[in-house]
Design a protein around this nucleic acid. Sequence first.
DNA 1: CTAAAATCCTGGTGGC
DNA 2: TGCCACCAGGATTTTA
Length: 273
Amino acid sequence: MPMPELPEVETIVNGLQGPLIGRTFTGVRIGWENIIARPTVSEFQRRIRGRRILSIRRRGKYLIFDLSGGDSLIIHLKMTGQLLVKPADAPADKYGHTVFDLDDGTQLRFLDVRKFGRVYLVADENEVVGALGPEPLADDFTLSQFSALVRKRKGALKPLLLNQRFMAGIGNIYADEALFVAGLHPRHKADTLTDEEIERLYRAIRQVLRQALADEGTTFDGAYRKADGREGRHQENLKVFRRKGQPCPRCGHPIERIVVGGRGTYLCTRCQK
DNA sequence: CTAAAATCCTGGTGGC
DNA sequence: TGCCACCAGGATTTTA
């Protein structure tokens, strides 16, 4: 059950803007205190009340709610977190650990089976997202910029793509998919890449993320859902992820699963070097 | 400096 | 059928 990555988080943000921008928080019920990363639970409850949502953005895999008064509400969904907007009188959701009440009679509900997700309320968003690497889909994220970043690294490509300080927003699904499209092995070392391979990787990352965004994300086992509760479509277009034993879409060789950097990793050993 | 391992969680899986 | 040990998995922290 992979977590929401850049395309999923962006799709969720897009779905939340309509129902939530302009709303004011009137209170919050916290059923699992560890969900609140900062500040303390009591201060969080006191500080969120009366704040109006001015805008909602994505940075990496984080959702950032810009609030009146200057604070930012920042949410990371981690593995299994979901955000849904429902009327306050709708039946309670299973695993709905945190429920924000809004001034129009609706609620923002944070569901999380595994309780890995985290919520922050901070005056300066950089306390939470300040160390993230560049956004791979930003217009000003160029090949030469990517190349310069890669040239500083020497480890295996898969852990590098998962490192949010290197680049923000890529997780296990899109790391595997991008490496397949680039024809690069997940254990290929960054310091042995040719200029041509770096360009292939740069283009593959952007292409894979754009396609997934167009498909409104990947849903596995119902874990990720859009803000309206519906599922994404990209699981139908995955080339290697979770496809162990199935034929490689490029050469027909069976997809294999290996472990790289402690992560399950899918690849075609014939196409990826 | 890098890299690996432990940590947090619980539904699902596989073994017997 | 029932029980149970084990696994996935992002980001952070700890250890080597």
